[in-house]
Computed example of a mutant assay.
Amino acid sequence: MTVVGNIITALVALLHVYFLVLEMFLWDKPAGMKAFGQSLERAQATKVLAANQGLYNGFLAAGLVWGLMLGANDHGIKAFFLGCVIVAGVFGAMTASRKILFVQALPAAVALALLLLA
């Protein structure tokens, strides 16, 4: 289960790199506006806030990669950052869009469960 947990953790990290790119660089571009269902006016008005949010997603990705680099059986750092992703996903689902629960929190919860069961 450790291998599968690490693979899913890596996928969660990649997902957060994708969020970083969308929020920091593509927020007011067609791909970013489509992903978040925004108009150009709203995207331009919230661009700085989105970039800040994207940076935090980058920190989550970096922490997960750090945990993966520590080795297959060292779960502490991975568990911490997966927990952070879960909390962020639940908060996002409560405050922004229920979809965040399934896109962000659920994959992290699956990875965390697999790592803890290993």
Rank of each mutant, 00 (worst) to 15 (best):
T2F: 10
T2K: 13
V3P: 01
V4K: 02
G5T: 04
N6H: 13
N6G: 15
V12E: 03
V12M: 07
V12W: 01
V12Y: 00
A13H: 07
L15G: 13
H16T: 08
V17N: 04
Y18V: 13
F19S: 05
L20I: 03
V21D: 00
V21Q: 09
E23R: 07
E23P: 00
M24P: 02
F25P: 10
F25E: 10
F25K: 09
F25W: 14
L26E: 14
L26K: 14
L26D: 11
L26C: 13
W27L: 09
W27A: 07
D28K: 10
P30W: 04
G32Q: 08
K34W: 04
A35F: 02
A35T: 14
A35M: 12
F36C: 07
Q38S: 08
Q38R: 15
L40A: 12
L40W: 08
L40E: 14
E41Y: 08
R42L: 12
A45M: 05
A45S: 15
K47R: 15
K47F: 03
L49G: 15
L49S: 14
A50N: 12
A50M: 04
A51I: 03
G54Q: 07
G54N: 03
L55C: 07
Y56M: 12
Y56F: 13
N57M: 10
N57K: 07
F59K: 01
L60R: 01
L60T: 00
A62Q: 08
A62E: 11
G63W: 06
G63I: 01
G63L: 06
L64N: 06
L68F: 12
L68S: 11
A72F: 03
A72S: 15
N73V: 08
D74K: 14
H75G: 12
G76F: 05
G76K: 09
G76V: 10
I77F: 09
A79Q: 14
F80N: 00
F80D: 02
F80S: 01
F81V: 04
F81I: 03
F81Q: 06
L82H: 06
G83S: 05
G83F: 04
G83N: 05
G83L: 04
G83P: 04
G83R: 02
I86G: 01
V87H: 03
V87S: 03
A88G: 07
F91W: 05
G92A: 05
T95F: 08
T95H: 12
A96K: 09
R98G: 11
K99Y: 06
K99A: 07
I100D: 03
L101R: 06
L101Q: 08
F102L: 15
F102K: 03
V103C: 01
V103F: 12
Q104K: 01
L106N: 00
P107W: 02
A109L: 15
V110H: 01
A111L: 10
L112C: 06
L116S: 06
A118T: 12
A118C: 07
A118R: 11
A118P: 10
